[in-house]
Amino acid sequence: MTLPEAEITLTVNGRSVRRRVEPRQHLIDFLREGLDLTGSHVGCEHGVCGACTVRVDGRIVRGCLMLAVQAAGCSVETIEGVSESGELADLQSAFHQRNALQCGYCTPGMLLCAAELLETTPNATRAQIREHISGNYCRCTGYQAIVDAIETTLTARRAGRTAD
């Protein structure tokens, strides 16, 4: 029995990659297993926990609810990419200062989720922050520190300066 395979070319964190994949492999497994980008995590594989949140063509998606083959031709960004570019340095610093993480498993997904809010809703209230991240499960923090860190970053960005 030979399993179906497909060749895909896509951009990941700014670099073009070409790989053969099984169509059944979801994007998060592809990033982790195929490209060793282990910063994004598998949490539930049914689209509920948000640990696998990555960006595809500029929008956040659940990495477990998208197949790698679907990402052919797309631009994918992961926590590794946004860390290297420094795009989220202020948010990451605010998370650090506020201790908005404990075990860290949800953190990369939480950061990418929050980043979308920073872009789309610069005047977000605490309630809006909570609503926006309500698809990302954190068992350790109780969420408050995360909300605080996002709020701090929003405020700092509005003031046109970085948080740290």
């Binding site: 980008l37 910063g39 993480l101 498993y105 950061l111």
Partner: peptide, 21 residues
Amino acid sequence: DPRPNARRLLQGRGTYIDDLR
């Protein structure tokens, strides 16, 4: 004091079992 070891987790550089090669 903020946790020094949180920095790597914030950049996706933690090592959970499934991350080992």
